[in-house]
């Protein structure tokens, strides 16, 4: 097999949050799909061993044969384990195991998998972290070059995001090897501009202020997110959806492009809607 030493060109991005239910898997699915749409060879890995869900969001749950734990234990090859997406070229899914627990993963085992992926010329490895700050979450962030901190405008989510930032800065491989720190990005999901205007919800500025990391994007609360997970289709593939557009903008920013933040304002409601809405 041809082995070109292009290891360092692969970028590893962890999608993490500490708190559960904030949209990590939704974000992982859309970020990975967005990167593949840009032409990058991308794999998205579900690190939530025991509670896999990424396969459902990506709509490939019936095609899972082998999983991450098989790959770590060398019971299957990379080629056998990766699921190629049917809609987007260059996109692959590496599902988590449903039957094992988080102890089945080791840093050494994951390191072997990462090495194989790099040898297979992947441009991006997107790691979908499980909730919490235990082993699974720490494994997911260990190899990260960049991190997308998914945060809801809500107290417990913001607090947990701050916690996970602390862990990134002390327990990632980059921190332990004294390398350049993991690049942090804030992604605010389930944002409701109307409630922010009413003073009922933390604003973008509040959250940026509190967490003090650069803002990658704001994903508005949108019914299309539920619709697309019902259908097993990453929301970024729904161009008419505001959430999908917001994810596309975020990918552009990830590439270093300058995009103004949209969906921070509500459309003005008419008098009738205000009375009976």
């Amino acid at each position: 097999m041809l082995n070109i030493g292009s290891d360092s060109l692969t970028k590893t991005i962890v999608v993490t949050s500490g708190k559960g239910g904030v949209g990590k898997t939704t974000t992982s699915a859309s970020v990975a799909t967005g990167l593949a749409l840009k032409g990058f060879k991308t794999v998205v890995i579900d690190f939530d061993v025991g509670l896999r869900n990424l396969d459902l969001i990506m709509g490939c749950e019936r095609r899972v044969v082998y999983d991450l734990v098989n790959l770590v234990n060398q019971e299957s090859s990379l080629h056998q384990t990766l699921i190629k997406d049917k809609r987007v070229e260059n996109l692959y899914i590496l599902p988590a195991s449903q039957t094992r627990d988080k102890d089945a993963l080791t840093i050494e085992g994951i390191a072997r998998v990462m090495h194989k992926l790099k040898k297979s010329q992947f441009d991006y490895i997107v790691c979908d972290s499980p909730a919490g700050i235990e082993k699974g979450a720490k494994m997911a962030l260990y190899f990260a070059d960049e991190a997308i901190i998914t945060t809801n405008p809500e107290v417990s989510s913001v607090r947990d995001s701050d916690r996970i930032l602390g862990i990134l800065q002390s327990e990632s491989k980059r921190a332990k090897m004294n390398e350049e720190p993991v690049k942090e990005h804030l992604l605010i999901t389930r944002y409701n501009p109307g409630r922010v205007r009413e003073g009922q919800m933390l604003s973008v500025d509040d959250i940026v202020d509190l967490l003090a990391i650069p803002l990658l994007g704001i994903i508005p609360e949108s019914s299309s997110v539920l619709d697309s997970s019902n259908a097993g289709k990453p929301v970024i593939l729904v161009p008419e959806s505001e959430a999908g557009q917001a994810y596309s903008d975020a990918i552009d920013r990830l590439m270093g492009e300058d995009r103004p933040h949209r969906f921070m304002e509500t459309r003005k409601k008419g008098l009738l809607a205000r009375l009976f809405g």
Binding site: E154, V155, V158, R159, D162, R163, G166, S170, V196, E198, G199, Q200, M201, L202, S203, D206, D209, L210
Partner: peptide, 25 residues
């Protein structure tokens, strides 16, 4: 218009996060 609860949330978080940093750093 009620006084928003978001302001309270922010104040509480500011204190909390400062404590969190003090404890871990």
């Amino acid at each position: 218009k009620p006084k928003g609860s978001a302001a309270t949330a922010k104040e509480r978080l500011q204190v909390l996060i400062a404590h969190q940093h003090a404890d871990s750093d």
